[in-house]
């Protein structure tokens, strides 16, 4: 994908199958452009993609009938009540007028705007506008929903509500979700899989749960004393280790090595172990690793 001579997305290859996929990346990584390209807003300069087996370059209209999109920026039609707006969006998706009106009411109740549905969108707060955008994205019951920064500008209760709705939709099993965000917590709470973009390239695509399971549990030790000698002794036991600060040592225990062995070595080396805890890589670790390492594959 290029804008003029500037490459925005490149070498993206793979297959996404998850029910809820988090699209992560720093600002300008190409998350929104990827969504726009999949929606057919920007024609790819080379290559193509398929959604539910349909080509985005030749079958965009059919694809758009199957997807819902919640844009990042404020997007609405002025001088309309929420129910009128959502109904119009449903009709544009192909629903007959009566069904569209019925579904507009339902969608607005579902997102929690039931009582405010006859109010003009111009009078809505930012949080309410976000919910109205979600309502228009789901009113026609799409099979795939693109959510671009859905929690942008929301206060904590509104954010929690949005996250709960996204999780509910995911758990209903009736729609796939692609959630683009730079907020790791949102993605961690809603998504099963993550796709991390860096400079328009694929940095990581993984199943979050599997990745967590696959990540070996490691021990984080906080020590006092000559930790280099201590680390060397741990290495001699065949364990992987990393010094992560002046007093911290990260250790992956090998089979046959137990915590008491570490205490024994510490005693021999005259090292104090002040703290010891089991840890796994968090999404933040995965993200930071992806940012450092660069490009991964599917």
């Amino acid at each position: 994908m290029r804008f003029g001579k500037r490459p925005i997305l490149q070498n993206l290859k793979g297959e996404l199958r998850g029910r809820a996929i988090g699209l992560l990346g720093p600002n300008g990584a190409g998350k929104t452009t990827l969504i726009h390209t999949l929606l057919g807003f920007h024609p790819p300069s080379s290559g193509t993609a398929h959604i539910f087996g349909r080509d985005i370059t030749t079958d965009a209209k059919h694809i758009r009938a199957l997807v819902g999109y919640m844009p990042e920026r404020d997007s609405f039609i002025a001088k309309m009540s929420a129910v009128h707006f959502v109904r119009l969006m449903a009709e544009l998706s192909g629903l007959p007028s009566d069904a569209a009106l019925e579904r507009a009411h339902e969608a607005l109740f579902y997102v929690g705007l039931g009582e405010a549905r006859y109010r003009s969108l111009d009078t809505y707060s930012l949080g309410m506008k976000q919910l109205a955008k979600l309502a228009q994205a789901i009113v026609h019951g799409p099979r795939l929903i693109f959510l671009d920064e859905p929690t942008n500008g929301l206060d904590p209760p509104a954010r929690a509500r949005m996250i709960r709705l996204v999780r509910e939709i995911r758990d209903s099993g009736k729609a796939h979700i692609v959630l683009s965000s730079h907020l790791l917590r949102d993605v961690e709470e809603c998504c099963e899989e993550i796709l991390i973009l860096k400079d328009g390239r694929l940095a990581v695509y993984c199943n979050l749960e599997e990745e967590r399971k696959a990540n070996r549990k490691f021990l984080m030790l906080e020590t006092r004393g000559d930790q280099h000698k201590f680390a060397a002794a741990i290495g001699a036991l065949g364990c992987e280790y990393a010094l992560t600060g002046e007093t911290r040592v990260k250790v992956v225990l090998q089979d046959g090595v137990e915590v008491r062995d570490l205490y024994r070595i510490a005693a021999q080396q005259d090292i104090q172990i002040r703290r010891l805890s089991y840890k796994r890589d968090s999404l933040e670790d995965i993200f930071l690793k992806a940012m450092e390492n660069g490009h991964g594959g599917l």
């Binding site: 544009l92 192909g94 009736k174």
Partner: peptide, 25 residues
Amino acid sequence: MAVYEQTYKQYLGKLTPEWSRFLII
């Protein structure tokens, strides 16, 4: 997605013909 059910539901009803949708505006 009935109001009383408050769950996400796909729309499975009939759709309007594509040629006529510009008249919605």
